[in-house]
Nucleic acid binder design. Structure first.
Lengths: 358, 358
DNA sequence: GAGCCTAACTGAAGCGCTTCAGTGATCGCC
DNA sequence: GGCGATCACTGAAGCGCTTCAGTTAGGCTC
């Protein structure tokens, strides 16, 4: 029934065969300078012959007390995570920063909108975890705390005892808002993603905003409103559509609603490029000229944004990933969390924004 | 200097504190039916008080001889991997298939175009590995073999002793080619991705094709040519541009070259939707009407394809991931590799193809 | 109340490796 | 030629957990 997997050779097998101690075989693999080249060669050769593939990673981990992986906790499932280009770029950069022969990336995808299950976190073989944009009250975060694992938080939330990398969301949104306001727009709308992890989709008023759990959303909204208020725009009347995810299709839906308002907004501030791309499509479908009749601003500056000639707020995603990776490595070495690292932003003005019509 | 991390409690600590044996504490966590509810409760409570977060995952793995993770080997780095929507969808489906409280996903991204380093594979704590679209001669595959780990191959390559999931690439390409041929196109071009892992970019002739290492590319080319040949098109004269990756920008570049040929092709068969999207853009930039002057066909049917109204070959990516996941689970239980699972394809005719001009 | 069962718990043997304090032997040096 | 240093290697103590063959006590049956 059960597969008769041949009992694999262990360190011991090799040691006995060559006639040396286990310590020596171990050294052959991990500290070549601890034995003579000749012996080492003999050991490796015997190992090959016996089909020994080197020290067992798990046993090694137990003995060294290093799991040899950095875990990444994501908010949603993989498919929505990976359809977020901003995340992908940042993740790639993070991965290559922490890359090393004995370190792997452990992926802990979220279930629904609430992050990974606590159970998975409790059982994860990892030394340090990086959380990306989780809601403040995610059970996974509590689990990390319970296990006493070092934690690096990206974007969200603010948590005592953890290192943090964040983007100047407020500042970026401010830039975007000032930009459209200075172009003369007075009727401005906002198109954003989740405020809380409840899958809400639709217009969101002040009460919903103030009850929000996602710092990124909240900061961007504050930035937008601040920038508009500076130019004397009455911020109570700035409509916001909350999409349950940062996906084109959802952006398009929200934009359709915004464009249906009377008086129609002449500018839409979008919290991500993906949402903005959806808004662009909605405008096209409704026959609204961009930027003639409506201006659209994104956030992130992903490759798709420049592809679509979208004005957007640029954040240095590669730098963000690198910083997160370095923090993770430093915490691995036992460093105390340092002060949060903030990644700067700037505005990329392209063809999707223009002066408001008189 | 070093952080005085308090020595964490172990199973033993709890056992001593409660006054029971280690076995019993272990059972409290893993086999609740092996002890009385009262005692179990007392144990858990004491554990909480002492800050014990449950059995150490690594030690547990050593004792049970299960690493508790499935590893995924990718061809390239994360950012190019994740910008491939087809991969993301399939990966998400795979992840949710194998998901369980004590199983995580170990990511082994490739370095360059050649897959993960063998070293990383040798040290990965995993029970089973899934490889996605690696070149036949990737060192990572040899490493998996050396470690004697069960392997599930997706799309590529054909390897003895491994389970396999593949798409009917040949059949899909055949459908695409027949479609354009039946619309009357005679001058047809192909826009594909890598034939070998050498980063080549540019036109590729028969000799390069026959020296290719990526089965997916080769099968699709065969399918295209077969479909065209059926309609009497001279396949020696069908131009192929090889892009070093499945990315829009590269597709655009290739399409520009193809559109510059004289006589100009009236249809382009693209090996992925991303490449096709690039071709669409190239056509737009050159003022070529789609499908009036040129027809374009993609492959995969990602969300972006329907978004762009692209005619394309649909493969069931969710099913593909699910099958790969199930194979992985089955091999985990010691099953012998079964015959390869083939995922079917069909043609999604949309607005990017039309009759050839007379 | 003897005999048998079951539930509840224990002891000890691993799992496969790393590491550190030694132990001899060899070497260089004056 | 004697002495300390260096080199090459070993023994044994863990790392923290699971598991399996017992053991014990209590309950049930006739």
């Amino acid at each position: 029934m059960s597969p008769d997997r041949v009992r694999r050779p262990t360190l011991d097998t090799i040691a006995r065969e060559v006639g040396v101690s286990r310590a020596t075989v171990s050294n052959a693999y991990n500290r070549p300078d601890q034995l003579s080249a000749g012996l080492r060669e003999r050991i490796i050769k015997t190992a090959k012959e016996l089909g020994y593939a080197g020290p067992d990673p798990v046993a090694r981990s137990l003995a060294t007390k290093r799991a040899g992986s950095v875990a990444i906790m994501l908010c949603d499932g993989l498919s929505s995570a990976f359809s977020d280009p901003a995340l992908c770029i940042m993740l790639d950069s993070l991965a290559s920063t922490v890359d090393s022969p004995d370190r792997a990336l452990l992926l802990l995808p979220g279930v629904g909108d609430a992050g990974p299950r606590a159970e998975n976190v409790m059982r994860a073989q990892t030394d340090v975890v990086v959380s990306y944009s989780l809601p403040d009250d995610a059970p996974a975060l509590a689990a990390v705390g319970e296990r006493n694992l070092p934690l690096v938080v990206v974007d969200q939330p603010v948590l005592a005892g953890s290192a943090r990398v964040q983007v100047d969301d407020f500042g970026g949104a401010l830039l975007a808002a000032r930009h459209v306001a200075s172009l003369g727009h007075r009727r401005v709308a906002m198109l954003g993603f989740s405020l809380s992890a409840d899958g809400h989709r639709g217009p969101a008023g002040p009460s919903r905003i103030s009850a929000g759990h996602f710092r990124v959303s909240l900061d961007r909204i504050s930035g937008y409103l601040k920038g508009l208020a500076e130019q004397g725009i009455v911020t109570d009347e700035v409509p916001l559509w909350e999409a349950p995810g940062s996906v084109r299709e959802l952006g398009r839906e929200g934009a359709r609603w915004l464009f249906g308002l009377r008086p129609r907004p002449t500018a839409v501030l979008c919290m991500s490029d993906e949402l903005a791309l959806g808004a662009l499509r909605a405008a096209e479908e409704l026959g609204l000229a961009v930027p003639g009749e409506v201006s659209i601003v994104g956030f992130d500056d992903t490759p798709a944004a420049s592809w679509a000639n979208l004005t957007t707020v640029r954040q240095d995603l590669v730098e963000k990933g690198r910083q997160a990776g370095e923090l993770a490595l430093r915490m691995l070495e036992g460093a105390r969390p340092v002060r949060p690292v903030t990644i700067g932003v700037d505005l990329q003005v392209r063809g999707s924004t223009g002066p408001a019509r008189r």
